[in-house]
Amino acid sequence: MWRDALLVAGKDLRVEWRSRVGLGQVVPFALVVLLLFGLALGPDAQRLRAATAGLFWVTVLLAAVLAVQRSFAIEAADGARDGLRLSGLDAGGIFVGKAAALVVQLLLLELVLAVAAALLYTTQLSGVALLIGSCLVATIGLASVGTLYGAVAAGTRVRETLLPLLFFPVVAPVLLAATKAWGAALDHRPGGGLGWLGVLAGFAAAYLAIGTVAFGPLLEDS
């Protein structure tokens, strides 16, 4: 399974690198959203700093939907999804591979967004270990859910609108826990974020396990 996962992750990242959709569309989209949030809240620096964690993670969620849709759009073109099924790759490996490629893309996006948020909202990024740790586990959770529901939505004619409907309610715990963990880190009290980090890790582990088992039937039936 791990060999297949590496193969699929490498393929997805190579496709993204060649197409530059992530760099050319998802990153600019996320930066614009972050900017719009700033404009909506006004020039009050105190207020912006207090809202940084929540705004950051809402932006990540919105961008994650685009990244997930893109991840399955490449399989929809010219029957590539059937090619993937015909390849004989382990379904669990395909799930882990696609999720891993999403994790890499989202982590890079989060790095850019974190710098942008620090500049736009004049927020000092403190508690870096907690910030990085929560980013990592939250992103694994987002990518796992996204890959799972991306497969569900990909088999329908309303995939563009169905995915956000399925995705956002399920990842609400990630939004909550990641915002709390980031809030604690930015408030210089990293100890207060450790519990939320545990919630994020539990969520990620659960959806990784569910996805690894459920992805095969979803790929076949949807």
Partner: peptide, 15 residues
């Protein structure tokens, strides 16, 4: 063990 040549190419356009 099987190879299918279909109406689609089953290939990735960006690669």
């Amino acid at each position: 063990e099987v190879g299918l040549l279909g109406h689609s190419s089953f290939l990735y356009e960006e690669l």
